[in-house]
């Protein structure tokens, strides 16, 4: 999950944030890391660029991007499905 945190920081240009500042279960949006709707789109790009995963159902977004842990679980599930 540490790599994923590093990728999120780079993708979203969160220059004042370090990977250790993001808790695994911390909400990414609003009251947590404070990400916005454009950041959500950038996270979709991150999944495509880094993991070749396309988020086909937009309604999955809030569940997938709830925290770093939910993102990691989604990536793991879809990577094993792609193998």
């Amino acid at each position: 999950m540490s790599d994923l945190k590093t990728q999120i920081i780079a993708q979203l240009n969160l220059q004042d944030v370090k990977p250790e500042d993001i808790a695994d279960d911390q909400p990414l949006f609003v009251e947590g890391l404070g990400l916005d709707s454009i950041d959500a789109l950038e996270l979709i790009v991150l999944l495509q660029q880094q993991y070749k995963i396309k988020l086909s159902n937009a309604e999955e977004g809030p569940k997938v991007f709830r925290s770093v842990r939910t993102m990691a679980e989604y990536i793991t599930a879809h990577q094993s499905r792609n193998v």
Partner: peptide, 10 residues
């Protein structure tokens, strides 16, 4: 040309 960046588009 690759994947358009939403953060740049805005």
């Amino acid at each position: 040309k690759d994947i358009a960046s939403p953060a740049l588009f805005v």
